[in-house]
């Protein structure tokens, strides 16, 4: 029971830290890292949930794998938009007439 308390509790603390990071930091990369930290918090909780005394529940493991893929996709899209916005700002700066 004790390892479960440690892992579940740590997962929630990590989630809360990520949540603070998303709200409090301004830079896009910091926000993205914070969102990924939140995700890791949830995954920790799921992994802890999967652990039972007699057997391991594979369903939360599958959820974590799916969650990781989704997190990769979301992060990539955000980074891409950030790059595009930088590009548009650069264009606007080099062609002030627009």
């Amino acid at each position: 029971m004790t390892p479960d308390i440690i892992y579940s509790g740590a997962g929630m603390v990590v989630f809360a830290m990520g949540l603070y990071g998303v709200i409090a930091s301004a830079h896009i990369l910091r926000k993205l890292v914070a969102i990924n930290i939140m995700g890791i918090g949830v995954f920790m909780l799921l992994i802890a949930t999967a652990h039972h005394d007699t057997l391991i529940d594979p369903v939360p493991h599958a959820m974590v794998l799916t969650g990781i893929v989704v997190a990769v996709a979301g992060t990539a899209l955000c980074l891409w938009l950030a790059v595009v916005i930088r590009g548009l700002e650069h264009d606007a700066a080099s062609h002030p007439s627009q």
């Binding site: 409090a24 930091s25 301004a26 830079h27 896009i28 910091r30 926000k31 916005i85």
Partner: peptide, 10 residues
Amino acid sequence: PSFTDTHAST
């Protein structure tokens, strides 16, 4: 999101 200052907070 901002792109300039890595440490600033909104």
